[in-house]
Amino acid sequence: MKNIFIAAICFLSTHLQAQTGKIKKMTSYLMPQIALIDGSSGTSTQIQLAGGLVKNNWHFGLGAGIDYYEMRSVPLFTDVRYHFGKEQKVFTYANVGYNFSWVQDTRDPRFILPPSSNAVKQTDGLYTDIGIGYTIKIGKRNSLLMSTGFSVKQMGEEYHPLPFSSWVWPSSTPWISSESTTVRKFDYTFKRVCFKVAYRLW
């Protein structure tokens, strides 16, 4: 899944780059944005930078950011937008991509048996965000974009128990036997509402 997504991004990026020189009417956009995210686990924040090309009412781009909701992650996503009408004030957007885990502390504090750390591996997952928004023009090229959307972030954890294979005190009791230890997997699905404010630089 991760590899397919990365390949898709590379393709899109190359494709857009190739197109830039051919289509004269196409312009580009770049906008940093900050988001307030709210879900059943609380409220958090997100910062992103998205940019790409504009053709008529369509925006096609790529984005990346940092998502602090529950498990910190770095979403890397495609950004597609459609601005309605001639004034292009109201718009809708869709982000689809991949969340890369960026969790700092992987220690499991519950286990005090030496050594105290047990291997915990975070796994990456899908990132989606769809929503609608409104554009407020500021000056000739810049604008403020406010949007609200529904975002899903999927991540996971794999807990690898430290082998407790005792060659001194052998036992077939599962929690002691290394052969019996099992990986414990947690797949999290975080569903959030997000409110974003973006400033379009150009």
């Binding site: 879900g39 059943s40 414990r184 947690f186 699905t189 975080f190 509402v193």
Partner: peptide, 26 residues
Amino acid sequence: YLLLLLLPFTVASCMKDTVKESYSFF
């Protein structure tokens, strides 16, 4: 329009984060 954008926050609490846990026991 701007007020409408805030409306979804009223339903945020209806959405639930979920966990699918896979493990083995003996």
